[in-house]
Write a protein that binds this DNA or RNA. Structure first.
Length: 258
DNA sequence: CGGCTTTGACCTGCGC
DNA sequence: GCGCAGGTCAAAGCCG
């Protein structure tokens, strides 16, 4: 995986926050304040996820120390998409990582956390090879629909607007459409996108209590770039990461006895 | 057989 | 009101 980015926009479809991240995942670096490298969404159409100019993708890697972890609101956001790459780290880093992985944010706090994250880090920078931003809409074409319980008619036909949820978009330069973020996803739809040869795929987290969704689409302008948009926050730990951490956790527990 | 993908149909919101 | 585009559903099929 290379040139990974996170992006998004806020309720007004305005580029709101961008956070450069280091090469090392799952580290989420606290960004310096340089200007946001997210393009205005004025031209948002069906291709509504192309908010980040391609120049940003070519930006040099950020030079933050890998240990500077995001905490608080961004931590919850970060847990929605942590690729399974475990760099070498100190014991202090382990504590932070465990905190990140084990955190299960209360659903009622999701929006506040995301909003706080967007506020705190609005501005972002273009020095990283990855960007992050919070979003609750994906442009003019976005409709936040409430998923209604199916009645006798069978098909959902809710008319209320679904409560907006935090959205985070990754841009990944990769041949592979699906980036392994450690969670299990079930595809539930695919749509052809206007002005794009590549369809948009819709996925839901397979965890029974989790309502997180993600969309995967290739950029029309640069088909080597995959845009993955996450909607919502996982309410369960990352399975793969927990799997990898379990033996280490046991070891830490054992050592802590002394 | 269970879980997942595919795919056409359906529904909603928005712009004209 | 109509057409378009995006998002979701659910039946059918595939696969391990």
């Amino acid at each position: 995986m290379e040139n990974l980015q996170l992006q998004g926009d806020d309720h007004d479809d305005e580029a709101h926050a961008a956070t450069a991240l280091p090469d090392h995942f799952p580290y989420f670096a606290v960004p310096p304040p340089p200007p946001l490298a997210v393009a205005p969404a004025a031209s948002a159409t069906s291709d509504d996820q192309q908010h980040v100019p391609l120049e940003a993708l070519e930006a040099p890697p950020c030079n933050h120390r890998p240990g500077s972890l995001v905490d608080g609101p961004q931590l919850a956001a970060a847990t929605t998409a942590v690729p399974m790459m475990l760099p070498a780290m100190t014991s202090l880093d382990w504590q932070s990582l465990l905190q990140t992985c084990l955190q299960v944010p209360p659903p009622v706090l999701e929006q506040q956390q995301a909003a706080a994250a967007a506020d705190q880090y609005s501005g972002g920078n273009d020095h990283g090879n990855m960007q992050v931003a919070e979003s609750s809409g994906d442009g003019a074409g976005n409709k936040e629909k409430q998923v209604m319980a199916k009645g006798g008619a069978g098909r959902s036909s809710g008319t209320k607007k679904k409560a907006s949820r935090p959205r985070f978009a990754f841009q990944t330069r990769s041949d592979n459409d699906i980036l392994d973020d450690g969670y299990r996803w079930r595809k539930y739809g695919q749509k052809a996108v206007k002005n794009s040869k590549h369809p948009r795929s819709y996925y839901r987290c397979t965890h029974h209590t989790c309502n997180v969704k993600k969309q995967v689409q290739r950029l029309a302008k640069d088909t080597s770039i995959v845009v993955t948009t996450y909607e919502g926050v996982h309410n369960h730990p990352c399975e793969k990461l927990m799997e990898a951490l379990t033996p280490i956790l046991k070891q830490l527990q054992f050592l802590s006895q002394f």
